[in-house]
Simulated scan of single mutants.
Amino acid sequence: MTFLLTPFATDFMLRALGGGVLVAAICAIVGTWVVIRGMAFLGEAMAHGMLPGVAAASLLGLPAIAGAAVSAVVMTFGVNAITRRGRLSSDTGIGLLFVGMLSLGVIIVSHSRSFAVDLTAILFGDILAIRPADLALLALALGVTGVVAVIFHRPFVALAFDSRVAHTLRLRPRLAGAVLVGLVTLAVVASYGAVGSLLVVGLLLAPAVAAGHWARRIPTTMLLAAVFGSVAVAAGLLVSWHAETAAGASIAVVAIAIAALSALLRQLTKVSSATP
């Protein structure tokens, strides 16, 4: 018990745990839809496409999250324009937009004197430096995400299975698609300041994938994904404390390991049940 409890006796570790659990809950709601809709590449593009805004904000002495929000808005409008009116496939268009934004960010960051440090912080964040204000922001983002997810549940479900059915039922699939992209943006921007872009992507995908092996209903999948994500946060922080490793990267690795273990256990369960 000492091994498990001692690390969380410090204030900064408790704040890291609280912030990580809030991020896990936000990402569980949004990540479930990301996995169902096959939008993993969009999540990756949104997370890393924030780099130019963050870099520009850092050079100008502005809050990094403000720059992240500006870049995320640009990415959101660009993605919506590509998916609605673009002649290219959505994956191709998003890929070009993603590479362009990422390259622009690297160009901006390369002018600073601490290129490596800045880029590492952008990718991995610093979950151990979460402040009370960050916790309040994450709690607000979780509340907004939950409300929007409840209001647009039926349009999201219809859109996930057949956009034509959604249109027939007058559920406005285009609006639903834009709102879903907006939720991904909100999750990425709200979580970025606490955990960086790499951990956001990991918690968007891995817990939802792990939960999908055991749950069939969407709300149940979200709840289970939140549990898996929270376990990944706690276990990753413990690994970081005792092994003296990077906290964000440790959490991401644990989340991926949970997804892999979940898939393996599910497969073993199927084989066991099929054996006479």
Rank of each mutant, 00 (worst) to 15 (best):
H153K: 05
G193K: 05
A160L: 06
A187D: 14
L142V: 02
R154N: 10
L175D: 01
G193W: 01
L135V: 04
L140W: 02
A194W: 01
L175E: 04
F161D: 10
V179T: 08
P155G: 10
L175H: 09
V188M: 14
L140E: 11
R164E: 15
V195D: 08
V195A: 12
A187W: 00
S191W: 04
L142Y: 07
A158F: 08
F152R: 14
A136R: 11
L138R: 07
P173H: 14
V148N: 04
P173T: 11
V147G: 06
A178I: 01
P155T: 05
A149Y: 03
S191Q: 08
R172H: 12
T168D: 05
L183K: 13
L186W: 00
L159C: 11
A133D: 14
V188P: 13
R174Q: 14
H153R: 12
V157D: 02
L159W: 04
Y192A: 14
R174G: 15
A190G: 08
R170K: 13
S191M: 12
R154T: 09
V189P: 14
G143H: 13
L175N: 01
L140G: 08
L186E: 03
P173S: 10
V189H: 01
G177L: 04
S163V: 11
G146C: 13
R170I: 02
V181Y: 11
A194M: 08
H153P: 01
V195R: 07
T168S: 15
V144C: 12
G193R: 07
A133M: 13
T168H: 08
H167C: 00
V144E: 04
V148E: 03
A141M: 08
L183S: 14
V157A: 03
L138E: 09
L169E: 02
V188A: 09
L180G: 05
F156V: 02
V188E: 05
L137G: 04
L180T: 08
L186Q: 02
Y192R: 02
S191K: 06
S163A: 15
F161L: 14
V181H: 01
R174D: 15
F156N: 00
A139P: 03
A166I: 10
R154I: 05
